[in-house]
Amino acid sequence: MAEMNLRQALSKGLREALDNNDNVFLMGEDIGLYGGPYAVTKDLYKDYGPEKIIDTPIAESGFVGAAIGSSMTGMKPIVEIMTINFSLLAIDQIVNHAAKMHYMSDGQLSVPMIIRTVTGAGGRLAATHSQSFEGWYASVPGLKVVAPSNPNDALGLLRSSLNDNNPIIFVEHSMLYGVTGEVPEPYYETPIGLPKVIQEGTDLTIIAWSGMIPVAQDVELKLKEENISCELIDIRTLNPIDFELIFESVKKTNKVVILDEYWETGSFGAYISSVIQENCFDYLDAPISVVNSMNIPMPYSAELEDQVVPNTKRVLEKIKNKIGL
């Protein structure tokens, strides 16, 4: 076991990929000489050189499309889009091209690539720089979406993504890079699609991913003080999802709250909720609650931002008022 933070786990995974597969290369804005906007690729340029670590112009649609094309010839590009907000400039390439190529060619062509990008709020970056679009991408057949919340999963999911022959949206939350944890020394992979129970409990199932995991953990601690035992599930992957593990938990606790940093309307959390109620209706003792960001473009002011995103206080209120715990 080695203790490291999420940033270091990703860096380790990227180095492994570069070392083990000659067709792997990285590209993105300021990932090289600058050291990476969030320092995930720090020193890679020095160690692997400009052929492997490509600093791109600010041209998201262009370089994402180029990555797609290169992957169709057998390359394995790992693209970094600085944040998920800027992925909107490349959304045509991602949704209309990467996601469709394999299907429309009936399997003749494949797009084995990874798009790493940064999601979420918390940086006081205001309305255009604080969004959580992973749920959008998860809704598109042909794309896989992973969103690790800790170093162990980050490395394991990065390895699985490398071995997958589909376009993968690899979502990192800007507030989680410093999260530390144990990472096993022997090689392991974390399967894409498998949620994980990160805390066992009996009274309430809390489902979350990515930046909402720390909030879920805080809520779990607060409820423990009131002798309420929570089961915490990190879904880790948004598409695909193996729901069986979630159903098992719901059948045990009979109550569910889902945390989703996206806005209320059209949230991925609401989709999870609908799947649960359709499959576990008879086991539910209370309505399923979803806690989202308020339906407000993110204000800059820190005091406002902290209230707009799902926070412990708002989650606890909802658990009391809607679920009745």
Binding site: R124, L125, A126, A127, P299, Y300, S301, A302, L304
Partner: peptide, 12 residues
């Protein structure tokens, strides 16, 4: 991020 700002602290 104050209320007397040009966008009352919403823009930054």
């Amino acid at each position: 991020g104050k209320v007397d700002g040009t966008s009352r602290g919403k823009g930054g």
